[in-house]
Simulated scan of single mutants.
Amino acid sequence: MRRFLALCGAITLVASCGWGGDGAEGRLPAAPVGVTAAAGSATSVHVMWNATGQGVEVYEVYRGTTKVKEVPGSQHMVDVTRLRPSTMYVFTVRARDTDGRLGPSSGEVRARTPAAGAADGAPPTAPGAARGKVIGGRAVQLSWSASSDDRGVISYDIHQGTTKIHSVGGSQTAAVVTGLRPGTRYSFTVRARDAADNVSPASGTVRLTTAPGADAGTGTAPTRFRASTRLGDDGAYYLDLSWVPPRADGTVTEYQVHLDGRPATSLVFGGSAPSDRATYGFYVGRDAGVTYRVRIRARLPDGTWGGFSPERTVTTGGSRP
């Protein structure tokens, strides 16, 4: 009789089993992960984090020990303004649930605002050649050509309709927008911002319609997924996985491994999550000749699950792609 063993994995930082649901009643909200901070101008910093899941009513953003912003639980980015030029700032984020319980603080992130320079009233030129492509029913990729500015572009603001939804650094000319609805038409524009907070005219409008129907999310799936088994020194078999994280604006820190169509293990990277090649291995038992079907998916920075990787089949005592 085949024996199925799916134990909690031990990645270098945190791993947790996926069988038990999303959390026990009464548990505090989790500490936000994937927190990043980047200067938007000489007086502002764009702070972004991964959504922590259901039940979050508000995110609190702190500059040092001072709370400077509160945003709704549906939002996971904010611009902190009225800062000083040429100054290093430290930010953290905490989640508060619908019962008013405040979760632990995220890890600290740092950002330095650039120098303000002399008076500057000239905005950057509009980003050019704005274009995009649909990557499934829930995501699109946008790109544009760089703006020019007499003192340099600090950031690009991405707008969905009239609403600013994201900001990326001035050296970046592409972005991935996730959390969209299948079969829906969207309009996007991009604006450049300099250190003096001058904002350029908008780029040309990029109009895209996400793929219709039930979306498998293949455009947001991990790629180059590989799986193999090995016999450890302790005489037990281990399943070794490797993959390239999906492209997303923000940090992908959480993954879920499925064995034979069922959630087996969830893993969360703390600190510096891999942005290139990721690896993970876990114990599956001592019996040779046991076959497993395995696939993996990522929780995207907007809190939604991305698509599944291709499924691989492996057998203890041997493997095949």
Results as ranks from 00 to 15, higher is better:
residue 165 I to Q: 02
residue 227 A to V: 10
residue 170 G to A: 12
residue 254 E to I: 07
residue 221 A to N: 06
residue 142 L to C: 06
residue 252 V to W: 04
residue 41 S to M: 05
residue 176 V to E: 06
residue 97 D to Q: 06
residue 136 G to R: 03
residue 248 A to W: 08
residue 286 R to I: 12
residue 265 T to M: 11
residue 13 L to T: 09
residue 265 T to R: 02
residue 309 S to G: 08
residue 204 G to M: 07
residue 20 G to S: 03
residue 229 T to M: 08
residue 126 A to C: 12
residue 256 Q to T: 02
residue 235 G to Q: 09
residue 265 T to K: 05
residue 27 R to F: 05
residue 107 G to I: 05
residue 52 T to S: 10
residue 72 P to I: 03
residue 81 T to V: 02
residue 224 R to W: 15
residue 216 A to P: 14
residue 35 V to T: 00
residue 132 G to T: 14
residue 274 P to V: 04
residue 119 A to Q: 15
residue 159 H to F: 15
residue 294 V to Q: 05
residue 155 S to Y: 05
residue 70 E to I: 05
residue 79 D to C: 01
residue 155 S to Q: 06
residue 286 R to F: 04
residue 69 K to N: 04
residue 273 A to E: 09
residue 311 E to M: 10
residue 251 T to P: 12
residue 118 A to Y: 14
residue 100 G to Q: 08
residue 285 G to K: 09
residue 232 G to M: 13
residue 145 S to V: 09
residue 205 T to F: 06
residue 79 D to M: 01
residue 316 T to H: 10
residue 304 T to C: 14
residue 60 E to C: 05
residue 182 P to S: 02
residue 271 G to W: 06
residue 276 D to R: 13
residue 56 V to A: 04
residue 228 S to N: 11
residue 3 R to G: 05
residue 237 Y to L: 04
residue 316 T to A: 08
residue 283 Y to S: 02
residue 42 A to S: 13
residue 121 G to I: 11
residue 76 H to R: 12
residue 306 G to S: 07
residue 189 T to F: 14
residue 299 R to C: 00
residue 7 L to N: 07
residue 140 V to Q: 03
residue 145 S to Q: 13
residue 303 G to N: 05
residue 85 P to E: 07
residue 209 T to D: 11
residue 181 R to M: 11
residue 320 R to H: 15
residue 197 D to I: 05
residue 235 G to M: 08
residue 196 A to P: 03
residue 78 V to I: 10
residue 52 T to C: 09
residue 63 R to C: 03
residue 55 G to P: 09
residue 185 R to A: 10
residue 266 S to Y: 03
residue 234 D to T: 12
residue 75 Q to M: 12
residue 226 R to Q: 13
residue 60 E to K: 13
residue 243 W to H: 02
residue 281 G to C: 09
residue 248 A to C: 14
residue 112 R to G: 01
residue 20 G to N: 07
residue 251 T to M: 07
residue 231 L to P: 10
residue 145 S to N: 09
residue 132 G to A: 10
residue 202 A to G: 11
